[in-house]
């Protein structure tokens, strides 16, 4: 190799070193984030109520719980959802995506306060803009 070629190789790698991580970090930063509901912690700590409705699928278990005259939607993710950004919405009567409830990510239990009557949920991938699954009670 000539010194010119050696220099070109080195510059290429310095370029790759800078550009790739920047793009990766920007991609991670750009995952849509939604505000976490403040009431969550409070309700979650005081929840031992009656289970009103349940529903279960291969990867999600749903429970509607009533405690201290408040309704709580408990979502347990049994299998990891293969999506970087999943949001939960109320399922309308016509099975379309309704009001936003909250965001879920890894395996685990999520609890959200619910104010109105609910027949099911729609889990939505906000990066791709498509529904992952819908679950009805």
């Amino acid at each position: 190799m000539t010194s010119n070629l050696r220099r070109r190789h080195l510059f290429m790698w310095i370029g790759i070193l800078v550009i790739l991580p920047v793009l990766m970090i920007l991609a991670i930063i750009n995952i849509p984030k939604f505000p976490v509901n403040d009431q969550l912690v409070e309700i979650a700590s005081s929840n031992k109520g009656a289970v009103l409705k349940t529903a279960i699928t291969d990867n999600v278990e749903l429970k509607l719980i009533e405690a201290a005259s408040k309704k709580i939607l408990e979502i347990q993710i049994l299998q990891p959802l293969k999506a970087s950004s999943a949001t939960v919405h109320i399922l309308n009567d016509d099975l379309s995506k309704g009001d936003f409830i909250g965001q879920i990510s890894a395996k685990g239990i999520y609890k959200f306060p619910i104010e109105k009557e609910i027949n099911g949920i729609s889990i939505f991938d906000h990066i791709k803009g498509e529904e992952i699954t819908k679950i009805q009670f």
């Binding site: 190789h9 790759i16 550009i19 990891p80 293969k82 970087s84 990066i127």
Partner: peptide
């Protein structure tokens, strides 16, 4: 040699392909 140094461009594209693919398909 110039043609074969394009492997670096291919490498960068492949890393991003795998990274974004992994990201969008399974986390």
């Amino acid at each position: 040699k110039k043609l074969h140094m394009m492997v670096y461009v291919a490498y960068a594209l492949i890393i991003l392909h795998v990274f974004l693919g992994a990201f969008q398909q399974e986390t």
